Amino acid sequence: MIKFSTVLAGALALALTASAAPAQDWKSKYPELVFGKVPDENASGTTTRWTPLTEYLSKKLGTKVTLRIANDYAAVIEGQRSGNIQIAMYGPASYARAYLIGAKVEPFAIEVNNDGSKGYYSVLYVKTESPYKNIQDLKGKNLCLVDPNSTSGNNVPRFEMNKLSIDPDKFFGKVIYAGSHENAVIGVAQGTCDAAFNWWNTEAESNLLRMDRKGMAKAADFRIILKSDQIVNSPMAYLTDLPADLKAAIRKAVLDLATDDPETFNKIYEGKGKPYDAVDHKAYQPVIDLTKFVDTLRKSKS
């Protein structure tokens, strides 16, 4: 006669094996996950800021997570469309572009500012010593934008300029894509451009202030002559067709980051941000609409 305890133990072992199967399935399919990051600052700065997060995720998920710093914003978008980048951190317009070209992506976490707000702005910088008081004073001058898929460095600026009846390609002497927010500021500092659009969260945090802390620029050397309406903060997004338990594990690890590993979280935001909050696609519909509008502007000119 088989003892009841033996039968119970066997059933329990079978149940545990069955519950573990999905995790084992995705780990065999994804022995490595790639975390893509747009180059909004120089490569060394991006590596220093985001590598600890991928190490944290590797520990939490039990599978290797590798940081990939793209050459431009489009490379991250295309990497998600091809399925080669499973998780990405980028601006709202990059998420919108990925969605519009058919990448199967969904946002799951949003950046939160130190004051609890979940939005930021596009601002137009000029040198403090320059004579420019508003954007109209820049007619015939050189403008630095960031990247065609940058929210605060291209799409919102073009939307704001359209409201002022300014066609940047006709209004300015030259429009230059600097490649990163840092390069756009450096362009103004070095005189390549007379003005540059950039991201600005609050009085306590902006790309310019980050550059000041790194010794790359002096915030006092620049002033703002134009500020956009608020834009929804940047998302982190993963591929929609990842296994549900893997997505849940990624989401939980990211939302718990500030509590579980405050050192890693503060490495990213330098004490200037609050923990990530959950978000979904609906929050980015206005940015998708704006991206479509900017596309329409471009097509109408061509």
Rank of each mutant, 00 (worst) to 15 (best):
Y276N: 04
V112R: 14
V146F: 03
L61Q: 08
V123W: 02
I288K: 08
A43L: 05
E129C: 14
Q136L: 09
V185C: 00
F159N: 10
Q285C: 11
Q136C: 04
P131F: 05
F159P: 13
K163A: 04
G173D: 09
A258Q: 09
K163P: 11
Y269A: 12
S300H: 04
L100Q: 15
D277N: 07
D261N: 09
K141H: 08
K282L: 07
T202R: 03
D221Y: 01
V7A: 13
I268S: 07
A278C: 01
G179D: 09
E111L: 03
N71R: 14
R49Y: 10
A11T: 07
L145G: 11
I69S: 06
L61V: 08
I288W: 00
D137L: 05
L16F: 03
L138H: 01
V34I: 12
K60D: 13
A184C: 07
R213K: 06
P31F: 04
W200M: 01
V38F: 15
T66V: 13
A103N: 06
K299D: 11
S228R: 04
R97V: 12
S152N: 10
D72I: 15
P31S: 07
A96E: 01
K218Y: 12
T48F: 08
A21K: 09
H181P: 07
L16T: 09
S28I: 13
K37G: 05
I176W: 00
K37M: 12
E182W: 15
Y56I: 00
T240K: 08
P157I: 00
P262N: 08
I77G: 12
E106T: 13
N201P: 04
